[in-house]
Computed example of a mutant assay.
Amino acid sequence: MADVTSLETELQELIIDACNVPDAPEEVDPEAPLIGPDSPLGLDSLDAVEVVVAVQKKYDVRIGGQDTSREVLRSLRTLADFIRHGQS
């Protein structure tokens, strides 16, 4: 499994909390899909909205339109990179 940064771990906890994920795995591969049928957290498009709101509130970043959010929410890694580098 790829190295997991503290930001990715923090994001995983934030997402599990925001989306009330039952039986969440202890560690999620940061490259695994965040949303959709292959998501280890079982997140769907409604959860994506919760994630965007929680992340914007906590990290004071703006995740733009549908295309941007789809790219940013591809995995924990892409979300962490977006926050680290600010708005692109």
Rank of each mutant, 00 (worst) to 15 (best):
L76S: 08
V72W: 03
R62E: 15
S75Q: 01
S75H: 01
Q66T: 09
I63N: 06
A80N: 02
L73I: 07
V52K: 09
A80T: 01
I83P: 00
D60E: 15
Y59K: 03
L79D: 07
D81A: 09
G65P: 08
V72T: 13
V72G: 05
V55T: 08
R70A: 13
R70L: 11
I63W: 03
D81V: 01
L73W: 04
E71L: 13
D60I: 07
R62K: 14
S69M: 14
L76V: 05
F82R: 02
L76T: 06
S69V: 13
V51Q: 05
T78L: 05
R70F: 11
I83L: 02
V61Y: 06
I63Q: 07
Q56S: 13
F82P: 00
F82W: 11
R62T: 14
F82V: 01
E71C: 01
V51K: 01
K58P: 06
L79G: 05
V52P: 09
V61T: 05
L73A: 07
R62A: 12
R77E: 10
K58D: 13
L79A: 07
D60S: 14
R70W: 08
Q66I: 10
R62M: 13
V53D: 06
K57F: 12
V61W: 06
V55I: 08
R70N: 07
V52F: 09
R74N: 08
Q66N: 06
L76H: 07
D60R: 13
D67P: 01
L73E: 05
R70V: 12
V52M: 10
D60N: 14
V72Y: 05
K58I: 10
I63V: 13
I83W: 03
L79P: 06
S69A: 14
V53I: 12
A80V: 02
V72I: 13
R62D: 13
K58Q: 15
D60G: 08
D81R: 05
D60W: 04
D67C: 00
V52D: 12
V52H: 09
T78C: 04
A54R: 06
D81P: 00
D67A: 12
S69D: 09
D81T: 05
D67H: 08
L79E: 07
V53M: 12
K57I: 08
K58V: 14
V53Y: 05
Q66G: 02
V72P: 02
K57N: 15
R74D: 09
V72N: 06
